[in-house]
Nucleic acid binder design. Structure first.
Length: 568
RNA sequence: CGGGGUGUAGCUCAGGUGGCAGAGCGUCGGCUUUGGGAGCCGAAGGUCGCAGGUUCAAGUCCUGCCACCCCGACCA
């Protein structure tokens, strides 16, 4: 491709709307263009990257025996009503009606449609196991699209579905896909952690996420160096607090003006945060208040709370509600003087604590030396607090590291969550009718692009791994008005094309510095620089990743480069 | 959906107290230059996010709306 004719236009300055490095670089390098919030066009160079990512995914899926098909974007509402997700998916579903008033949605995922297909075609155990997949655009009306391609409302996903005769067999498919995923990310050059995850709204029995470690990720993962345990922070269990043996001191009411945060209270009373009993007032969906109690050095993990309550319809009380219900203010909520019939949920970190500090629902006062059994009674204990750096690994007890990352893949062992309600049954060897046991497996194809950029860039631009680079090599003609240089660059370009290199030839009428800067920004892995040295029969080959340069006899340049590529 | 911020040329931004809409980069034409985002000369390019209001006069003040970005809960 001649750059002078190529639809690739770079920006000298960072676009003002971008924050994340991948977002800035993809915009600046001319790979993507925004249309509206969370909706982006992939320009030719960006689309080339996408296609290379898809190629790797296809090759590995096909190799595992999965079969590609193409489902639809326009999904009839009936299918979604069968599984209850027409309602459950809420505002995230893009809904529309046809001219006759029939309801549809733009598919945000395809369990319903594929299960519908399967129930029409599969009737015997002889047709199983089966894995089908597609690479398709998905639509989700996200509450908050972010960081360019990282979280869009329209994005490309590879979704696969497995169908088996039993849970045992389904688990084999699941583990096969897990291996396939590990291979895919390895080939793409992305560092990922396979983390145990919660099954969330999709439902099911077992789940892993593939998390690329980056600062701009939204997932929090706990990782154990000791035993390699790795899980999404929201599902990591914490162990109970140990019984403290100190002497119980006398209860005392202390004036603590203005101590409306744990830090201030801790400072004021010279008591460490873990000796403070924190109480938080929540309101459930029936507008009934309940209180969560935990140690002062802990935060409530709302995902864990959701798991305990079985619903996500709750929220923290407002200042007005705290005043109305408890007659106190933020920072002075406690276990004492509560109205009748208010539910209290105790975090297990509080178990066995002695001589605690606790508020009594009276502004500007706290009790000190509060003790369980003597001053109050414990209620229901649950694991409710957020995991922190250094908390013990649930498998081996070593301190956990907490990392941020981007979820690139998510696999679920679904069981019969969809096949049962949608009546996708088959007849087994023994003649009985059984629901198909399913698994589903997603990869955010378009999200992989920014994930790679997050992991492969420097202050000058992107550094594409060869497997996904939009072009493998950039032939840079430094002075297009020098006939000697021009002529040789043209020869090189023809030879590169003939020998099958994916090549861009920078024949634009621009200064050398301009072309170097663009080559860096766009991140082509190899450059062949045709400049003054042509007179002495030489060109320069440069590697974007290492900055290494080679002065090569000009006739041997392409073969030298091919050799460099093959040796990687 | 709650909180914060921004909207002026293709891009990045400047435009006290209301008084002729600006710069740099980019684009077009010309000459020079060619190993790190070249120089000089000339030119084109605007619904100042939208609608209303105040005023002799609004980019600037007021009201409403919209879009985009960031922080939170959700997701590949």
């Amino acid at each position: 491709m001649r750059w002078s004719k190529y639809f690739l236009y770079t920006l000298k300055e960072d676009p003002s709307e971008a924050e994340a490095p991948s977002h800035k670089l993809l915009l600046r390098a001319g790979f993507i263009k925004q249309v509206s919030a969370g909706v982006y066009e992939l320009l030719p160079a960006g689309y080339k990257v996408l296609k290379k990512v898809e190629k790797v995914v296809r090759e590995e899926m096909d190799r595992a025996g999965a079969q590609e098909l193409l489902l639809t974007v326009l999904n009839p509402a009936e299918l979604w009503k069968e599984t209850g997700r027409w309602e459950a998916y809420g505002n995230e579903l893009f809904r529309l009606k046809d001219r006759n008033g029939r309801e549809y949605c733009l598919g945000p995922t395809h369990e319903e449609e594929i299960t519908d297909l399967i129930r029409k075609e599969i009737s015997s155990y002889k047709q199983l196991p089966l894995i089908l997949y597609q690479i398709q655009v998905k639509f989700r009306d996200e509450k908050r699209p972010r960081f360019g391609l990282i979280r869009g409302r329209e994005f490309i996903m590879k979704d696969a579905y497995s169908f088996d005769v039993s849970e045992e067999e389904a688990k084999k498919s699941y583990l096969l896909m897990k291996e396939v995923y590990e291979r895919i990310f390895k080939r793409l050059g992305i560092e990922v952690l396979p983390a145990e995850a919660s099954v969330g709204t999709i439902g099911g029995k077992m789940s892993h996420e593939f998390i690329a470690l980056t600062e701009y990720g939204e997932a929090k993962v706990g990782y154990c160096k000791g035993c390699k345990y790795c899980a999404n922070a929201e599902i990591i269990p914490l162990t109970e607090g140990e019984e403290e043996r100190e002497e119980e001191k006398a209860l005392e009411k202390v004036k603590t003006p203005g101590t409306d945060t744990i830090e201030k209270l801790s400072e004021f009373l010279k008591v460490p945060p873990h000796k403070i009993m924190k109480a938080i007032l929540f309101i459930d969906k029936e507008s009934k208040p309940f209180i969560v109690l935990l140690r002062g050095d802990r935060e409530v993990d709302e995902n864990k709370l959701e798991a305990v309550l079985g619903t996500d319809e709750f929220r923290m009380a407002t200042d007005e509600e705290i005043d109305k219900i408890l007659g106190t203010k933020k920072g002075f909520v406690g276990i004492f003087n509560l109205p009748d019939n208010i539910r209290t949920l105790w975090d297990i970190s509080l178990k066995g604590k002695k001589n605690l500090v606790c508020a009594l629902n009276e502004p500007d006062y706290h009790y000190i030396n509060v003790n369980p059994g003597r001053d109050f009674e414990y209620g229901e204990f649950y694991d409710l607090s957020e995991i922190k750096e250094g908390d013990p690994c649930p498998k081996c007890g070593s301190p956990l590291e907490i990392k941020r990352g981007l979820e690139l893949g998510h696999i679920f062992l679904l069981g019969t969550r969809y096949s049962e309600p949608m009546k996708a049954f088959f007849t087994d060897r023994d003649g009985t009718e059984k629901p198909v046991v399913m698994g589903c497996y997603g990869i955010g194809i378009s999200r992989i692009i920014p994930a790679i950029v997050e992991q492969y860039h420097d202050d000058k631009g992107i550094k594409w791994p060869l497997s996904v680079a939009p072009f493998e090599v950039d032939i840079i003609l430094l002075n297009e008005s020098d006939p000697l240089q021009k002529e040789f660059a043209e020869t090189l370009y023809r030879e590169a094309l003939e020998k099958g290199l994916d090549v861009i030839y920078d024949d634009r009428e621009k200064s050398p510095g301009f072309k170097f800067a663009d080559a860096e920004l766009a991140g082509f892995p190899f450059w062949i620089i045709v400049g003054k040295k042509v007179k002495e029969g030489k060109v320069e080959i440069r590697e974007r990743h290492t900055g290494k340069t080679y002065d090569i006899e000009k006739e041997k340049a392409i073969d030298f480069l091919l050799d460099l590529i093959n040796r990687r």
